[in-house]
Amino acid sequence: MDLSVSIGPLRLKNPVVTASGTFGYGEEYSEFIDLSSLGGVVVKGLSLLPKEGNPPPRITETPAGMLNAVGLQNIGIERFLREKLPFLRQFDTSVIVNFFGDSMDEYSKAAESLSSADGIHALEMNISCPNKQAGWCIFGTDPKVTFEVVTAVRRSTHLPLIVKLSPNVTDIRVIARAAADAGADALSLINTITGMAIDIRTRRPVLANITGGLSGPAIKPVALRMVWETYNAVNLPLIGMGGIMNSDDAIEFMLAGASAVAVGTANFIRPTAPVDVLKGIEKYMAEHAIPGISAIRGGMITDRKP
């Protein structure tokens, strides 16, 4: 059976990748999982300069989910290229580097410095972070800003460019179209949904940052709906994610329109989760006599038009 999928110019050997921020720089999980068995490893989001992130506490569990406010802590692009990328190069998998900036200029520079490195197969651009220059509004919530920043990055890299969409918008299709018009090769969705939790005894927020990003099974129905909407709105390959715990979840995303899927929070619960998802997809294909995984993309049967 053919498990390979095309994400624009990027060819993945199979449709299962890891979600940025849940898999470290890959080496943390290499004890538990053969990274070469994955379609791709998406590393923790990087910025030009290292970032300390938010103060603790940063995470808390909520019903069937978790909130995190890590605040994009990372070691910076330079250290990543020097200390982490050589390790990832040993594996037969696509290395996808997630990155962000806090200005248009930083986005471009980050994309540029990653593009000259050997062993990076694609870039995933996080647009769910605040724009320092424009009053901290989020790059991924205003289609004009999204278009501008993706255009700038598109000019700075020859690598396949995946834009990771924020779900914290009124209509994700509008942002998806802006990213597509600006030259994105693919879209990944969804990032976490902004939420919060309060300790009623102390009357204080549970997270030091007050708000955080919700992930895990709790967000899967929302993610699935947004993938389906985006699939019907733009003609780009999609990487679907949001609460995928097993292969059934992954196949749902593909039927809704995702070409590939990312396993995120599940890594924390079962470090072998991405491989388990892949095995389950293979089993599903065998049981349903599906020769190639790309055939099930968007295969949800419905009598209604979106």
Binding site: Y29, K44, G53, P55, P56, R58, I59, N68, V70, Q73
Partner: peptide, 22 residues
């Protein structure tokens, strides 16, 4: 002690502020 998700240094959820950063 801190709230943890992964336990293996991947999620960066359980950091403590030290003299040498998180």
């Amino acid at each position: 002690e801190e709230n943890m998700a992964c336990g293996i240094g991947a999620c960066l959820g359980c950091v403590v502020n030290t003299g040498d950063g998180h």
